[in-house]
């Protein structure tokens, strides 16, 4: 037992690094994704096509490939330490994933609400910041948490460029002690716990959206699921450990 506790303690710096990498990547990715979402809803055609291309590229590239591209590719041009490479690579990946969420959230602001704001003599800027933005933030939070889960798990790929994040430090501890499996399993458990924490936040956020706007991003699939849970007639109802992270397809 003591042995496992020691193992957890020795993995904590790695876990901390993973969390840090994920947080910074998300903090880079969300604003970029939001701007991309604005552009995708905008009227500037050239900018829109450029954004579509970038989003398709970084969604289509495996995250590992993007990481290599940044870490080895940019190293030719600028000096980049591991951490910077990781957050740059996963920052753009997160941006590409969230762009579509923000695009859809912005597009989903009912026209009538913008018209009502216009009829109340609000300026364009006021309408954006006081009517559109709250709506978008409200509705986009649950799926963005879903992306955050992907980003958090994705930081494990930093192991491939020798970063001592959670997976990397579990592997080295195993190598030092000639017992590979245990530290890996402990690391896996830590990933599992953290992922579950985020998934739980996603569920709470989803409920909040449903409460406030009466609908949610996935067109009420969450509500449908809850309804289904109540209707056990079919024999195929939703289960207890429901992870809406599954809603994010790619």
């Amino acid at each position: 037992m003591q042995e496992y506790l020691d193992m957890i303690v020795s993995l904590l710096p790695g876990l901390w690094l993973s969390i840090l990498m994920a947080t910074v990547s998300i903090l880079i990715g969300i604003p970029l994704g939001f701007v991309a979402g604005l552009i995708l809803n905008g009227s500037n055609k050239a900018l829109r096509w450029l954004t579509i291309a970038l989003v398709e590229i970084f969604r289509g590239f495996p995250a590992l490939l993007t990481l290599y591209l940044v870490y080895f590719g940019l190293a030719e041009i600028i000096t980049l330490d591991r951490f910077a490479a990781v957050v740059a690579a996963f920052g753009v990946t997160t941006a590409a994933y969230t762009a579509e969420i923000f695009r859809a959230s912005i597009a989903s602001v009912p026209r009538g609400q913008v018209e009502a704001a216009q009829a109340l003599a609000l300026t364009k800027k006021q309408i954006t910041s006081r009517v559109v933005l709250p709506h978008v933030l409200n509705i986009a939070v649950p799926p963005v948490i879903g992306i955050a889960i992907i980003t958090f798990q994705g930081t494990a790929l930093a192991y491939a460029i020798g970063a001592k994040e959670l997976l990397g430090s579990a592997y080295s501890i195993g190598m030092i002690n000639f017992r590979v499996l245990e530290p890996l399993l402990v690391a896996a458990l830590l990933y599992l716990l953290f992922t579950s924490l985020l998934a739980w936040m996603e569920i709470l956020a989803d409920r909040r959206v449903a409460r406030i706007s009466g609908t949610s991003f996935d067109g009420g699939a969450g509500a449908a699921r809850r309804r289904q849970r109540r209707q056990r007639k079919t024999g195929f109802d939703a289960s207890v450990l429901n992870t809406p992270a599954s809603k994010i397809t790619q």
Binding site: P110, G112, Q113, E115, A117, A119, I212, S213
Partner: peptide
């Protein structure tokens, strides 16, 4: 408006 258009948030 016919559909109220209250700010949902």
């Amino acid at each position: 408006f016919q559909s109220f258009n209250l700010f949902a948030t």
